[in-house]
Design a binder for these strands. Structure first.
Lengths: 203, 203
DNA sequence: TATTTTTGATTGACTGATCAATCAACAAAA
DNA sequence: TTTTGTTGATTGATCAGTCAATCAAAAATA
């Protein structure tokens, strides 16, 4: 069985397995054994490739955020106008796979972990900044800089808040409703500020 | 030293200690020893009064949510009009002690724990429902039921989102800015719906 | 081509540390 | 003397991390 070039395959398998295990365990308190088992290898191999549990977990966060970023870049590229780009950002945030219970559970676990792990925190800060700056850049085309800052901050908070509320799975809000709520926020705050631009865009 | 009537004193000391330890540890992965030490008693005593670590943690969540509820009830009582009551709810949510880094860290840890502990989840669901229904009841006095539902959902999400974003401690938003953002959201969404009522309230 | 050597992949078994939980014992108050 | 409060010592389980050994492909050599 042992063939050459297994390293990248195993690394990916382990990172994916970690994401799955964290997701349905709902916490970073998972064992290397569980992860390794899920990936179909021995715990020793996980240590062999990642050195430590912490490192594997960090790689897992990194990989997850990377995927989110790729999706966002693609969606932004497909959108033409600033207003469309705002919608694209929102849509990606609530994409089905992002909004799955296990994903949200994992996401939450990462936030908790960030309180202790400086490296995890750094990744999440990058995510938060990116979300904010993507929103900001496109809002600036539709209203004044000050207003854009304020609306970006609010929209980012709303997106993250809808996420965390979803994690409780009581009165779950649908993907569409979450998107609608965020769009409504932006539309309503924007309306009195830039009637011209907003009108131009709305069909 | 042993005097009668220690039980409530010790329980409170342990619950408070747990909150503190969880707060600066930033996670529920804390040991009974740490908590007991912080409370100035032996680990065995913590087990004596709470039976298990899980139970102590659950009591800690309960106590924290209870305090938040008491604050809210008081603030609501002091406010007269529906619009004032909305502001009161927002103000309590971002109160200094609620917004302290350790409190936010603990809060986050509870959310993560809720993925595994049914009882913790129940408490948080109750909190989420209460926030929503407090907002809803007062919004209904200012606009239609459907609009009230929508705005309550959005405001609750924004409050929780501002919280979670705060936990990253990058570009921290001040208490005042968080309140302003949420107030602005409610004002702006309400404005076109009930000019009369909103006007009446705004001085 | 056949044979040997090297190297990467992989694991089972083990170790050391940590921790929740238990328990027997003791001290002071009632 | 009974009850309540309290602890030190211990146990048993869980886990991250290590290590020596194995196996098969690839590379080198004959």
């Amino acid at each position: 069985m042992p063939k050459v070039g297994m390293e990248p395959v195993r690394r990916k398998a382990l990172v994916d397995a970690a994401m799955r295990v964290i997701g349905d365990h709902g916490s970073l308190t998972v064992t290397m054994s569980e992860i390794a088992k899920q990936a179909g290898v021995s715990p020793a191999l996980a240590h062999h490739y990642f050195g430590s549990k912490e490192q594997l977990l960090i790689e897992t966060v990194r990989s997850h955020l990377q995927r989110l970023r790729d999706n966002t870049v693609m969606a932004l590229r497909a959108a033409k106008t600033p207003r469309e780009k705002l919608s694209a950002i929102i849509r990606v945030s609530f994409q089905a796979d992002q909004f799955a219970p296990e994903t949200i559970a994992a996401w939450l676990a990462f936030y908790a972990e960030a309180q202790r792990s400086e490296e995890t925190r750094r990744f999440l800060v990058i995510y938060a900044r990116r979300l904010r700056s993507n929103l900001l850049a496109n809002l600036k085309a539709l209203c004044s800089g000050d207003d854009a800052e304020r609306i970006a901050e609010g929209a980012a908070a709303m997106i993250d808040g809808l996420y965390i509320r979803q994690s409780l799975r009581s009165a779950p809000i649908s993907i569409e409703a979450s998107i609608a709520l965020t769009e409504d926020y932006i539309n309503t705050l924007l309306a009195p500020l830039s009637r011209k631009a907003a009108f131009q865009k709305d069909r």
